[in-house]
């Protein structure tokens, strides 16, 4: 789920990568689900608050020149990215309604929330 991918990979390529990844784990790039992007820049998530429909894939893209992470607040973690260097991204599909708070475990002042309806 947390395969870092370079920015601006065309959707077709992403799907191809996805197909390759199917062998090792579940695929997040569902073709019938909407997707939306949260940009990480300047030590902040933008938008910090996101409302989506269940089934939507959220993709975090690190545009900053420092690494960041996307880590769910809950224990155990509901989702957690690997360290995202500049240009890396992380995607997560939210299937269940609820409020999902997250933060960057390197810079914990960076927080965000995904509200799934």
């Amino acid at each position: 789920m947390n395969t870092p991918m370079k920015r601006r990979i065309p959707g077709v390529l992403a799907l191809l990568t996805c197909a390759v990844l199917l062998a090792s784990g579940p695929c997040v790039y569902a073709t019938d689900a909407a997707s939306t992007t949260v940009v990480i820049d300047n030590f902040a998530f933008n938008p910090p608050k996101l409302s989506i429909k269940a089934g939507t894939t959220v993709r975090w893209e690190n545009h900053d020149d420092m690494p960041h992470l996307v880590i769910s607040d809950k224990t155990p973690r509901e989702f957690a990215s690997k360290p995202l260097d500049s240009g890396d991204s992380f995607s997560q599909t939210f299937t269940k309604p609820g409020t999902y708070s997250y933060f960057c475990s390197m810079h914990p002042r960076m927080t965000g929330v995904v509200i799934v309806k």
Binding site: D73, M106, P108
Partner: peptide, 12 residues
């Protein structure tokens, strides 16, 4: 001392 482990969301 170590102050970079187990950081909490919104914290320092």
């Amino acid at each position: 001392l170590v102050n970079v482990i187990d950081l909490h969301g919104g914290g320092l």
